[in-house]
C-alpha cells in the first residue's frame, strides 16, 4: 500500500491501521499529531483508524513560531 507521508511517497506491505503505520515510521511519544487527508485524527483513535492506498498523512510536531 502506498501512502503519502509528509509529502513523500512511502510503501507499506499490507493494509495498516494508522497506529501500525506510525510505529513503522518510528514515531513515538506524544509530541506529534496527525491529520489524514487533511482531517485531524485524535490520538485515541489511531488504532481504529484504517488507512487506504493513496491516503495522505500529515504528521506535525512543535516548532518555534511568531
Amino acid at each position: 500500500m502506498q501512502l503519502l507521508v509528509n509529502g513523500e511517497t512511502k510503501n507499506f506491505d499490507s493494509a495498516q491501521t494508522l497506529s501500525e503505520v506510525l510505529q513503522k515510521l518510528g514515531y513515538s511519544g506524544e509530541t506529534f499529531a496527525v491529520a489524514v487527508n487533511g482531517d485531524f485524527v485524535p490520538r485515541a483513535t489511531y488504532e481504529q483508524t484504517s488507512l487506504n492506498a493513496g491516503d495522505s498523512l500529515d504528521i506535525v510536531a512543535p516548532v518555534v513560531g511568531g
Partner: peptide
C-alpha cells in the same frame, strides 16, 4: 509557537 511536518529523526520538536 507553531506546528510543522517533522520526521522522527528531526530534533527541533524535542528542543521546543
Amino acid at each position: 509557537l507553531s506546528l510543522r511536518r517533522q520526521s522522527p529523526a528531526q530534533q527541533q520538536g524535542k528542543i521546543i
